[in-house]
């Protein structure tokens, strides 16, 4: 799968396609990041736009105002998002279920409004990132989207690896235990506040990295693009659509959602306003109604059927052998 994603842009040489692939990778990666805190640890965040936006703004502002290298800005943004996550999480984790979810939403909304009315960063007008020469160090490429793709691809690979390591380590087991029952987790010696905090910080860090990358790719950001609830919900949707709590889920979800929304936007542009989202909304409703475990759940059930079918076959064989 990862390899297929990697070679596709070189087979299909089309700028629109390359654009869709970059956006796809960014959102798949952010989905993975969100999946760590919500899918594994079971703490529903409706406010990941906050971290995405912090990443986008930090690197952009540092570059625009202070000429600081975007890679350094990316790291700074990630650190800032992590710190924010830690500060916000401590009080928020006292809240359970929906109360927590609404709190994350509230935090993201507050940050958005502060940025909107913050003149230093041009408020609602947004920031155009100064255009400089092409190059890896500058993290700007104007002739082709392929370099962006490669960078997104590598970073996405790192995120996949981190997700995999998290899931298959003590941390992953602990997070899932907390999700399933915080009481049972505590009775097994798990400090759930600590582990949720770690999960949130990792999640925020990774989300911010891709916020920065997004800003460097689009070269323009405003608070509504990167801090809005739409971003938060897009992340939630694609993971739930693909299959929450699994590593493949966010990738599959993004692979469906992003091309759908990007292509319909490219196709209909300004004219068919809304049609893409109508189709998309209906699709989401259908999946929710008929595939409640997401697409990964559906695939699993199908392969499970296959496995049990072959197993059944094996059993009859054995039976026959025994008789003969």
């Amino acid at each position: 799968m990862y390899v297929v994603i990697g070679v596709l842009p070189f087979i299909i040489q089309n700028t629109n396609f390359h654009h869709v692939m970059v956006i796809f990778l960014i959102f798949a990666a952010v989905g993975e990041a969100w999946n760590i805190i919500t899918g594994f640890a079971g703490q529903t965040s409706f406010g990941h736009a906050a971290f995405f936006g912090i990443g986008a703004y930090t690197s952009s502002v540092l570059f625009w105002k202070f000429k600081i290298n975007p890679w350094a800005g990316m790291l700074a943004g990630a650190v800032l998002a992590t710190v924010t996550a830690a500060i916000v999480s401590y009080p928020a984790f006292r809240l359970k279920g929906h109360y927590f979810a609404i709190a994350t939403l509230a935090v993201a909304e507050i940050i958005q409004q502060l940025v909107v009315s913050w003149d230093y960063v041009e408020g609602a007008t947004g920031i155009s990132i100064p255009v400089v020469a092409d190059g890896f160090l500058n993290l700007q490429f104007h002739k082709s989207k392929i370099p962006y793709f490669i960078i997104a691809y590598v970073l996405f690979g790192v995120v996949l690896l981190i997700s995999y390591l998290v899931e298959n380590s003590k941390l992953g087991y602990y997070l899932k235990a907390i999700r399933e029952s915080s009481d049972a987790a505590e009775a097994m010696g798990i400090d759930h506040a600590l582990y949720k905090l770690i999960a949130m910080m990792i999640s925020a860090f990774l989300t911010a990295i891709f916020g920065s990358l997004y800003a460097q790719y689009i070269l323009y950001i405003d608070p509504f693009m990167v801090f809005s609830m739409n971003i938060s919900m897009k992340i939630v949707l694609l993971v739930v659509l693909g299959g929450i709590g699994t590593i493949m889920g966010p990738v599959i979800g993004a692979a469906i959602l992003i091309p759908l929304s990007e292509y319909t936007r490219i196709l209909f542009g300004g004219t068919g306003k809304g049609i893409d989202l109508i189709i998309f909304g209906m699709l989401v409703v259908l999946v929710a109604c008929y595939q409640p475990h997401g697409i990964v759940g559906m695939l699993r059930r199908m392969s499970l059927l296959k496995v049990s079918a072959t197993k059944g076959g094996g059993a009859t064989h054995a039976g026959r052998n025994a008789v003969s």
Partner: peptide
């Protein structure tokens, strides 16, 4: 997910 999809529609 379902209600969000509905709201989009």
């Amino acid at each position: 997910l379902a209600t969000f999809g509905l709201s989009l529609v």
